[in-house]
Design a protein around this nucleic acid. Structure first.
Lengths: 160, 160
DNA sequence: AATGAAAGTCGTCGGTT
DNA sequence: AACCGACGACTTTCATT
């Protein structure tokens, strides 16, 4: 029988991260393309020193990547949709697999509640919605919302 | 009386964006810190040429920023929460304003449906949840979910 | 709109404190 | 853990196609 002991994979304390690291992270969250030299000037450190710190933050998994943020509408995806799903019994794994295979889906989470699964996707037209939803309806109950605007634009973690 | 004519602010066709731009965007969505020289090698263009294109994409609003992605748990925010809100009549504006003022909220959207407002936030402990929800409960009905995992990790737009 | 060359800046490495 | 100095790589500008 499988081991059912449940425990967190790791402790959640930020260890080995000091105030200087937080300042570096704050800068990189706002402008990921800033040079090490410029970053060094902003936090009063030499370029090699910041490069060292950034590398450590990457290796420690604190920085998970650097992404250019694009406007989906400017690229021909005027429709953004959020879908919540209440999976049928034992179908959650299958729903994850389908979500993985639909490229329009750009993020996807499991969470607490009746609708324990949700994802966001960008579409070229509303026409695309129905066939995608039909991939999921055999395995759960879907609730779909079209996203209008962002009253709060996406912003960085509050690292003081 | 206010002008009630409703029309989209702009057309949604990707104009003036060619296949080379899409390749550049695909690269930058995966690694925003790549150098222009390296980017040029990947798309078979000189460094000045890619730099020009990237600048035009920025000025056109196609690229909206460059963000370092960080792991909230590694920074002491082990709790990620998604909150949907069904606003009371005429209180939507107030809800937006409150969301704006809560730094733990990192994204926030309006959408169709009964719960026409939602946001995501990162917390240092579950203790933080109740006082934040209490900011909103006077103005709407909240539905809160704790986010567990990401069956599909955040990924770029499918630009072929 | 892209290229190639030139000047200034940056990234990186090794040695030092 | 950070600094300095040096070299190779990169960014940026400009003239040319």
């Amino acid at each position: 029988m499988a081991n059912r002991k449940i425990r967190p994979e790791r402790a959640y304390e930020p260890k080995g991260i000091d105030a200087l690291d937080l300042r570096i992270l704050a800068e990189l969250q706002v402008d990921a393309r800033v040079s090490f030299a410029e970053l060094g000037r902003r936090v009063a450190l030499s370029a090699p020193a910041v490069a060292d710190r950034v590398q450590r933050l990457e290796e420690a998994g604190v920085i998970t990547g650097y992404r250019a943020e694009v406007d989906p509408r400017a690229l021909g995806f005027p429709v953004t949709v959020m879908v919540r799903i209440r999976p049928a019994i034992r179908e959650l794994q299958r729903i994850s697999e389908i979500a993985q295979e639909v490229p329009q889906i750009v993020e996807c989470y499991r969470m607490t509640g009746d609708d324990c699964f949700y994802f966001t996707m960008h579409l070229r037209a509303v026409d695309e919605l129905e066939p995608i939803l039909d991939l999921f309806t055999p395995y759960g109950h879907t609730t779909t919302s079209l996203i209008h605007t962002a009253p709060v634009p996406r912003r960085p973690l509050p690292l003081e």
